[in-house]
Design a binder for these strands. Structure first.
Lengths: 340, 340
DNA sequence: GATTATACCGAAAACGATTTCGATTTTCGT
DNA sequence: ACGAAAATCGAAATCGTTTTCGGTATAATC
């Protein structure tokens, strides 16, 4: 009924708890005969060590914490997928928390994880990130920390990101190379670094190709939704019939725009090209299928965890660890919503 | 540097660890003055209890484990979302694991969670579920267990499901009521109870409406993909031009079918109606938007956890707990891929 | 046979908290 | 001022492991 403990084994074998423990852990000062006996009994009684006790004694939990804005989101669930897989390989378990874009919640969750004595924390920040005290606390406590995707530049720790600016630059360049000249940008909210960077990439691409920036072609999403994409497409088309391309902050917004164009017999890509961002699953099954920028979530999760492990190991060996920043490559997934 | 412990506080205050602990926990045999002093110092030194030690002593971890086939899947990430939210409310943390549809992995993971001494386990079974020994073990160890979505009928424990058979029955009835007479079914793999039940619901609906069952209208998906939906749609249309409806095991398969019909100018829903299953996000953004059966993942997660808590509480009080099965209602989300 | 080396084992402390139970002190009625 | 009741406190056991350090017993060496 009650879980078997070392003590139970020791009692049955008439030896000390110490010896049982040492036998099980392969210490050399245990005779073969007692070792065998211990293993046999452990097997028979189905002994499994109590992780909690081990954790207390060894001061490590083999558990890491992950905080993301939301899990119901292709990109983030891919990241989680990558993290969990990689963690399991090394015998680590993953506790997942959602901040729902609330810094307040994020703080609480950091505390929770710290109390749980997780061996490390991975986090993708909530949008309105000015406050970083709670993260500084993590660093001060010497708990390894890696930021991914939505990061804070002012925090000294490891990071895994994509180059949003470059990716956006490439996306818009792709549009320009296919002949587009009047390119709208349905950008993300004003705060997040991601959406700023993509916006800057857009501008840089225009600039490098001698296309004059036109403020009226910029629309700012608030909740980055299908509906916004649809609405903005409608609005911009009514005001600018000669628009010939849309670069959307996200596939979902792009799909919204395509829906409007489809319904109103505006040919995509012949009249208007559309390019999205993220390569969500959905973008391959709509018609026309959506050209987009692949954002490698799975890989990002894996890399982030690997960096975390690196830091954890350095710490174990008492070595100093210098934070690293990994920039993952993105690539354009060419489908049927753009020309060429 | 090192985390503050009760001992540290006790030392500074020149009182015993016992008293510090009792003060913090609000025991009545601590004077107001020392209580205040303790709280003040705890605050000042930023004391937080070491959960691991507490867990060992109290024999509970305030952690639950969840095993799902895969997390990169709208339905399951919604379930996880529901679970995490509900857990957090009660101060519980969630460890998520993916079985990747492998029973072998599932077993390992169960053991991992058991060793971690999680307070309870939620699991949605891998597809080829014949073996249930590892789950029986969980029950034998008196660790509360709740199955959801993909369950095993032969296991005596709480369950949260939808009535797949009835849901499918309603979906097909919807097609029939809209005038469809030759209805194909792109069913799921042969093993999972889900896909069996949906198939049975399909047959029952035909039977109740005096439509002869035609084996040649049944296609069996193996990996339940977009491509399969596309391929099956092509095949069946070439063999049966008079087909007038498709009931697909999943939205993704349905979307694949719609893609084929769209490309070949077969009007959906006027010539052929299509109905899916699950209400994935994607189904609302394709065109025509997909009529489907809503499968309440978020709610399922919440309910499953509530059941788990119920069992955990009963156990704490030493009460007997009788497993419950909750059947969540589904409803048809009428969109534009079916008539009426 | 005395000495040293080797093999094997176990007592005990530690990890950080909780809780029981007994001890001491204070308060108060008379 | 005395005894009883109430208010405070702390020692110690416990949760289940790990690990250090010392102690025996046996084998090897001369």
């Amino acid at each position: 009924m009650k879980p078997i403990t070392l003590k139970d084994l020791a009692l049955k074998l008439n030896i000390s708890v110490t010896t049982v423990s040492k036998a099980l852990k392969g210490y050399s000062d245990v005779s073969k005969s007692t070792r065998d006996a211990v293993f046999a009994l452990a097997e028979e009684m189905n002994y499994t060590p109590n992780s909690v006790a081990v954790n207390l004694r060894t001061r490590q939990t083999n558990t890491i914490g992950v905080i993301i804005p939301t899990i119901v989101h292709q990109f983030f669930s891919k990241v989680i997928d990558g993290i969990i897989e990689e963690a399991e390989k090394k015998g680590y378990l993953v506790i997942t928390l959602q901040s729902n874009e609330s810094v307040k919640l994020e703080k609480k969750q950091i505390d929770l994880l710290l109390n749980k004595r997780v061996d490390g924390i991975l986090i993708s920040l909530a949008n309105d990130q000015k406050e970083i005290k709670h993260l500084q606390k993590v660093i001060n406590k010497k708990t390894p920390l890696v930021l991914f995707d939505k990061i804070s530049k002012s925090l000294v720790c490891s990071k895994v990101v994509i180059n949003d600016r470059e990716a956006a630059y490439n996306a818009v360049t792709h549009l320009i190379q296919s002949g587009c000249k009047k390119i709208a940008h349905f950008r993300g909210p004003l705060n997040p670094q991601n959406s700023i960077d993509r916006y800057l990439g857009y501008r840089k691409a225009l600039e490098d190709n001698n296309i004059k920036f036109d403020k009226s072609l910029i629309y700012t999403c608030e909740d980055v939704s299908f509906e916004e994409g649809y609405k903005f497409a409608e609005d911009i088309y009514e005001k600018n019939k000669d628009i010939d391309a849309v670069f959307a902050i996200t596939d979902l917004v792009a799909v919204g725009a395509i829906a409007y164009f489809n319904e109103n017999n505006i040919a995509v890509p012949n009249q208007i090209s559309v390019i999205g961002f993220s390569n969500w699953f959905m973008s391959s099954v709509i018609s026309p299928s959506l050209t987009t920028v692949d954002q490698p979530g799975y890989k990002m999760g894996k890399k982030a965890l690997k960096l975390l492990f690196k830091e954890m190991n350095a710490q174990k060996k008492g070595k100093e660890f210098i934070p690293e920043t990994i920039v993952l490559p993105t690539k354009i997934i060419k489908r049927n919503s753009t020309l060429i």
